[in-house]
């Protein structure tokens, strides 16, 4: 899967989760730190992580769930490729 395709999927899910609490995530940049944007709350981020594991078919250990690996759309996409050996 291409990185751009992964980012499109993540962006779509983020928009959906932000929309659930009345926020518009259409302007988020690839490098924006997701928790710092305030577009999704903790439950939304948790939902994003659970979706991420499922969508890209990988199981995360708790210690992998950090800003370095999953903090932005860019880093989330890179981490998929890293885990998949791409």
């Amino acid at each position: 899967m291409e990185k751009s395709e992964i980012k499109t999927k993540i962006r779509g899910k983020l928009a959906e989760l932000a929309g659930e609490i009345g926020n518009d995530a259409s302007q988020i940049q690839d490098d924006d730190i997701i928790p710092a944007t305030g577009l999704v709350d903790s439950a939304g981020i948790l939902g994003l992580v659970v979706w991420y594991e499922n969508a890209f078919d990988m199981s995360l250990k708790q210690e992998e769930i950090n800003i370095d690996n999953l903090g932005s759309i860019e880093s989330m996409a890179e981490y998929v490729l890293k885990r998949k050996g791409g």
Partner: peptide, 10 residues
């Protein structure tokens, strides 16, 4: 300190 994604408040 722990580079958390989620707020650890609760």
């Amino acid at each position: 300190r722990h580079k958390f994604m989620l707020s650890p408040l609760l």
